[in-house]
Design a protein around this nucleic acid. Structure first.
Lengths: 121, 121
DNA sequence: CTACTTACTTTGCGATGTAAAGTGTCTGAA
DNA sequence: TTCAGACACTTTACATCGCAAAGTAAGTAG
């Protein structure tokens, strides 16, 4: 059996600070969001956002659309059906982590009271 | 103001699949755990575990102790007081993510019905 | 004395995330 | 009409990171 605390369901693609923010954001806005909206909502730089969207698109987690609005290029980003599924599965695993974390024993070890024979490394 | 979805509280050191497992595990076992217990609980290879513990120790998140039990070296690992604080703060931020994720709109976009003028990238 | 096990540590390297630089188009001023 | 600057991204370069594989050291069995 796999380790109780291995959390294999934590999809590497989604388990990334920036991308986790992006996906959470996109999941709450199923109609899609523009590049600049995403940039500000997730507090990312242009290059950063571009790169992460590329990764998400290549993994079929988001769909990217282009157009020209008022003579300027615009990028619209939308979470895909598959992306939503993967995101929900990921979130489910996160809930497991939180559940495990809540069972954290309250008693503190206070950096002392170690059986003899142990020396700090 | 920072982006609504930037999740700055997601401490990079803790926001790592393996280390998140390790910390969750260690937080639930404040008396500490042996190298091999951790290895199995978190389903990690020796090298992997060694490396992550080193990172966690250098960041004062865990304390490492050595001893010889039955003529074999033993490594005991325990979450530090500071480590527990950082872990709880991290978990708090995770809860925010889950809360945001739950507000996910149910209506699906079904990969269609896009305003005209948009073309797939 | 040799091979094997245990308990890790170190090394090497490919993959990843990010800042900085670059590209292309449009707009307004000189 | 030319040049600077804004806008909307994309590409590049690099340093960091995670991980598997190899290495170390000490004890044990044959």
């Amino acid at each position: 059996m796999n380790g109780r605390y291995s959390y294999d369901g934590l999809d590497r693609i989604l388990h990334e600070k920036a991308r986790l923010g992006l996906l959470t954001c996109l999941a709450s806005h199923p109609e899609g969001l523009l590049f600049n909206d995403l940039k500000e909502l997730c507090n990312l730089t242009d290059g950063n956002l571009s790169r992460h969207l590329q990764v998400l698109q290549q993994n079929q987690i988001v769909e990217i659309f282009k157009s020209f609005e008022q003579k300027r290029p615009q990028t619209l980003c939308r979470i895909s059906v598959e992306g939503r599924e993967r995101f929900l599965a990921y979130i489910g695993e996160l809930q497991k982590v939180l559940l495990d974390a809540e069972t954290t024993s309250q008693r503190q070890n206070s950096s002392q009271a170690l059986p003899p024979g142990w020396v700090p490394a």
